[in-house]
Design a protein around this nucleic acid. Structure first.
Length: 608
DNA sequence: ACTGCCGGGTT
DNA sequence: AACCCGGCAGT
């Protein structure tokens, strides 16, 4: 058998190579492991520039962005040296953004998010576009009409999106321009006014696009026709909107958390970051009922604190062992905690579930997930349990997916068809978090997006109350999304994701990051690398991303552990702007992932 | 009939 | 663990 198989495969493989090539253009020849050495703070950062140039920019906005570059002014030390460096390129992600309902708006978010969180890190680079923004602003008026047009074209964009995608990493300008600040103020005012603040929602810098995009301003990011692009839409409605928030003014704390000491105040981050995450748009309905909590993601910890500072400290001192520097944060803590937003309504549940202990009990509605049932690593179990309960209240936690098999990692937001909660537990309906945000158009596994299917789900996923109790067997509902077999065909079996190759549930086409959209915070995502090599690919949502070894090798960030960052365009409609991976045992841990598309930073933690 | 993928076996 | 596949179940 084996022989047979091997033979078969080998032959296929060869075939495949040729076939596949096109798709993976982004990928570069595998690099020796050496590439993965632990990052050296300084030097390595060579540039990661992605040359996306070729890509046609779908969005006009981007044009501006690209120009800018100069603004990197205050890049993190690590980056600074590089000069334009690698990351500097503006994230072209913007292109995509348009496609997305979010539009420019999102981009900004992304940047901001990133910068915010990882100030030290390359993310700063992202922030960048500020300058662009400036320019944009000036042009804003002129462009306004253009944007509108674009919006109208949003639909077209969908198609286009495939064409373009590139992502460059921008070096974030450390500071905001005055203009931006003003804009931010304005925006912030708007947002604040409409929203109770949430960490997520910080004053968004006003971007040209944003200004144009009235939809979200209004009460929510309603998918305007433009949004049609539709992938995402905001349903303003619910209060649940995640972002809403937080009593605890996370703002300050939370922000800090993200910021690196190195760039403490630039307001940029804030401004930028503040952008909104998708959440921002949600304006109106924010209830004050939302509460933000911060949960430690450290294995077997699960501690939940009300402030980012608190959780950071907890992580620093307890898990990172930095007692002495308890006050100093380099941002690493960010990787180990996540923010959870609780709707007061559900707070009770959430809290109960939050407790590191016995969460499982808390979530009655949640169906028994396979995971729960399956024997898994203790960690996994723990996480699962904890998360499950949270799913309702704190989806973010769900992102942590631990599976026994990497290939089974569940996308953080895996919403199996009809809003069922999949066994993986991690799945939860998206609705929960971002009630306001509805992911409408994702081509991919539509099923995931539709929580609505179940009667329980309220209109438009808005609320994710509880997973449908459907008695779903252990068997995962059959995925409706694309599957590797269909996509690549039997002939290209090698191109299939490992899960498909092993006849397991396909993950490649899942949309793990959806969730990320709403939770701008670092999320633990299910994203994982398929192999231990840099030149491996990992799947985010629809796309299979290939890590470019070359870039990776040049981009090293000081995360205190080996990690690599790389910018990559995806070969398809989605783009991954930047991601970092750190080796975690044999696997690599995806620390952050930025999808221009989603404009969110995600972190994935792979647990063996 | 085809496809997805679970459950469990093999390497 | 990684890999594979029989066979069930959904389409």
């Amino acid at each position: 058998m084996q022989a047979r198989r091997l033979a078969k495969r080998s032959s296929m493989g060869s075939r495949r190579l040729s076939a596949a090539a096109p798709q993976v253009d982004a990928v570069r020849p595998p690099k020796p492991e050496s590439a993965w050495r632990p990052p050296r703070r300084e030097g390595s950062a060579a540039a990661l520039e992605e040359e996306d140039e070729d890509e046609d920019v779908v969005v006009e906005v981007e044009e501006e962005e690209e120009e800018e570059e100069g603004g990197l002014g205050s890049a993190p030390p690590a980056l600074a040296g590089h000069g334009k460096g690698p990351l500097r390129g503006s994230l072209k992600a913007a292109n995509i953004k348009r496609e997305m309902t979010f539009h420019a708006f999102q981009q900004e978010d992304v940047k901001s998010d990133i910068s915010r969180k990882l100030p030290d890190q390359q993310f700063l680079l992202f922030t960048t576009k500020e300058e662009d923004l400036k320019t944009a602003e000036t042009k804003k008026l002129n462009r306004a009409h253009e944007y509108e047009k674009e919006n109208t074209r949003s639909v077209c964009l969908l198609e286009q999106k495939r064409k373009v995608v590139s992502s460059n990493i921008d070096v974030p300008p450390a500071r905001k321009s005055l203009e931006e600040l003003d804009m931010d103020k304005v925006t912030a005012a708007m947002v604040l006014t409409s929203l109770s603040t949430s960490p997520l929602v910080r004053s968004p810098p006003v971007r040209p696009n944003e200004s144009l995009n009235g939809s979200w301003k209004e009460g929510g990011f309603v998918p305007s026709s433009t949004s049609s692009s539709g992938y995402w839409s905001w349903n303003a409605p619910s209060d649940q909107s995640n972002p809403s928030t937080p009593s605890p003014p996370l703002s300050a704390d939370s922000f800090k958390a993200f910021r690196t000491p190195s760039q403490p105040d630039d307001g940029i981050d804030e401004g930028e970051t503040s952008n909104l995450l998708f959440d921002e748009p949600i304006p109106r309905k924010r209830k004050n009922s939302m509460k933000v909590m911060f949960k430690c993601l450290w294995k077997n910890c699960g501690k939940v604190l009300s402030t980012a500072a608190g959780i950071q400290k907890h992580i620093r001192t307890i898990h990172l062992g930095r007692v002495g520097e308890s006050d100093y944060s380099d941002g690493e803590e960010d990787f180990y905690y996540t923010e959870i937003r609780l709707n007061t309504d559900s707070v009770a549940d959430g809290l109960s579930s939050l407790s590191p202990v016995s969460p499982s009990l808390a979530s009655p509605p949640s169906l028994p997930t396979q995971e729960a049932i399956r024997p898994e690593t203790s960690c996994a179990k723990t996480e699962t349990k904890v998360m499950t309960p949270l799913s309702r209240s704190a989806p973010t936690n769900l992102y942590l997916v631990h599976t026994d098999h990497a290939y089974q990692a569940t996308p953080p937001v895996n919403i199996p068809g009809s809003a069922k909660f999949t066994p993986n537990g991690s799945s939860f309906s998206i609705s929960w978090q971002s009630p306001p945000v509805t992911f409408t158009g994702i081509p991919v596994s539509p099923t995931h997006n539709r929580p609505a299917g179940s009667g329980e789900q309220k209109q438009s996923h808005t609320v994710l109350s509880s997973p449908p109790r459907v008695a779903f067997g252990l068997r995962k509902p059959r995925g409706e999304g694309k599957k590797c077999r269909k996509v690549y065909g039997m002939e290209n079996r090698d191109m299939w994701c490992t899960a498909c190759r092993w006849k397991k549930a396909c993950q490649r086409w899942e949309q793990p990051f959806f969730a990320s959209i709403w939770s701008w915070k670092i999320l633990t995502a299910s994203v994982h690398l398929e192999s231990a090599h840099l030149n491996c690919s990992f799947h985010l949502g629809l796309q299979c991303f290939h890590i470019d070894p070359a870039l990776s090798s040049t981009q090293m960030w000081d995360l205190r552990r080996p990690c690599v960052t790389a910018m990559q365009k995806d070969s398809g409609n989605r783009e991954i702007s930047l991601f970092q991976v750190a080796p975690a045992r044999r696997k690599y841990r995806l620390l952050w992932c930025l999808l221009s598309f989603t404009a969110r930073i995600c972190s994935a933690d792979y647990i063996e």
